[in-house]
C-alpha cells in the first residue's frame, strides 16, 4: 500500500518501508514472515500511539489529506442508484457541488456534497471544492425538490471555503450562502450534515444547517482557515499551527462545545487507510440518524431544529 505519509507520520512511514523491503527479500532460506509480522504489529502500535495525541494542526492536515475519501467516494459506497442532477437553472452547473437522488438502505434521499476532485485535471474541474454561487443555488434547488417530495437530505461538507473570485462576487456569493442558511433553517424535511474533510467557513455552513451535524474524527470545521487566521491575528501565516490550536478546529473539541452532535470514528491512521470501513461507518450513522428523526413529526422536527439554531452562542446575560 502506498500511502502519502504526513510529516508527523514519518516514523510509521519508515517502519512501513522496512516491511516493504523485507517482502522483497528473495532468499528462500530466510523466513521473513515472523519478522514482517513483528514489524507490522510495531507499526500498528506506533500508529495508535501517534494518532492518540494529535494536535489540531495535525488533524487539519489529515482532513486535507490528498488520499482522503471525497463526497463522490461516499456517494458511490453508501448509496445505490445515484442519479446526478445538474445546474442551478439560472446560470451554470457548478462541479464543486455534486447532488442528486439516491437510495440509502432502500429509501429515496437527496444527497448533496462538496467535491474537491482527485486528479489535477479533476481538481481544476471541481475548482478544488470551492463552490461558486451557482453551486449553492443548485444545492438549494435540490433541497426544495427534496422538501416537495418528502425526501430526507444528506449533505457532505468538504471545502476550503466558498470561491473568492470576481465572478462569484458579481453573481452574489454572499446572497447565495445567506439564502441557503435561511431556507435550510425551515426546510420541511429532515437534514443530516456530515463534515467529511474540511469545513471551511461560510462555504461549508451553506450546506451545513440541519437536524444533525456529524463530523468524521479527523475532519475540521472552522470559521476561518488556520492559515488565514494566522495571517490576520498573528500577521504571519506560518503560525497556522498556533491558530489551529487556538481555534480548536477538530471534531472532538467542537463536540465538547456542543456545536456538533456526533463524531464518527475513523479507521486507524485515518479514513484514507480504509475507505470501505469509513463509508460503512458513515452509512450506519446516517441510517441511525434518519431513523431517529423519522420518529418525530414534521412540527417537532422543525421546532427542535429551530431550538438548536437559537441556542448557538456563549455570552453573559
Amino acid at each position: 500500500m502506498n500511502h502519502n505519509f504526513l510529516d508527523f507520520e514519518q516514523p510509521i512511514a519508515e517502519l512501513e518501508a522496512k516491511i516493504e523491503e523485507l517482502r522483497h527479500v528473495a532468499d528462500p532460506n530466510v523466513d521473513i514472515n515472523e519478522e514482517v509480522e513483528r514489524l507490522r504489529k510495531k507499526s500498528e502500535k506506533l500508529t495508535r500511539s501517534i494518532f492518540s495525541s494529535l494536535n489540531q494542526w495535525q488533524v487539519a492536515q489529515l482532513a486535507r489529506h490528498m488520499q482522503r475519501p471525497y463526497a463522490s467516494d461516499y456517494i458511490k459506497r453508501i448509496f445505490s442508484g445515484f442519479q446526478e442532477l445538474h445546474g442551478d437553472r439560472h446560470y451554470a452547473d457548478d462541479p464543486a457541488i455534486v447532488g442528486g437522488l439516491a437510495r440509502l438502505d432502500g429509501r429515496s434521499i437527496m444527497v448533496i456534497g462538496e467535491e474537491k476532485g482527485r486528479s489535477t485535471k479533476e481538481k481544476i474541474h471541481r475548482n478544488f471544492g470551492m463552490p461558486r454561487p451557482e453551486g449553492y443555488r443548485k444545492a438549494l434547488r435540490l433541497m426544495h425538490m427534496a422538501e416537495r417530495f418528502q425526501l430526507p437530505v444528506v449533505t457532505f461538507v468538504d471545502t476550503p471555503g466558498a470561491y473568492p473570485g470576481v465572478g462569484a462576487e458579481e453573481r452574489g456569493q454572499s446572497e447565495a450562502i445567506a439564502r441557503n442558511l435561511i431556507e435550510m433553517a425551515e426546510l420541511r424535511t429532515p437534514i443530516v450534515c456530515t463534515v467529511i474533510g474540511e469545513g471551511g467557513s461560510g462555504g461549508a455552513l451553506a450546506i451545513g444547517v440541519g437536524d444533525r451535524v456529524m463530523m468524521l474524527e479527523y475532519s475540521i470545521y472552522s470559521v476561518i482557515s488556520p492559515e488565514g487566521c494566522a495571517s490576520i491575528l498573528w500577521k504571519d501565516s506560518g503560525k497556522a499551527k498556533d491558530a489551529a490550536e487556538a481555534l480548536g478546529v477538530g471534531a472532538e473539541r467542537l463536540l465538547k462545545l456542543g456545536l456538533v452532535d456526533e463524531v464518527l470514528p475513523e479507521p486507524l491512521g485515518g479514513a484514507h487507510r480504509n475507505p470501505e470501513v469509513m463509508a460503512d461507518t458513515v452509512r450506519d450513522a446516517l441510517i441511525r440518524q434518519f431513523d431517529a428523526l423519522g420518529r418525530l413529526s414534521l412540527e417537532e422536527l422543525l421546532a427542535a431544529r429551530g431550538e438548536r439554531l437559537r441556542n448557538y452562542g456563549n455570552y453573559r446575560d
Binding site: I182, V209, S222, I224, Y312, G313
Partner: peptide, 17 residues
Amino acid sequence: MQEALTSLMQMAKTSAA
C-alpha cells in the same frame, strides 16, 4: 475569529430568526 466556530454559527442563528 476569537469565538471560532461559535461565531460562524451566528450566521445560521441570525438567518433562522
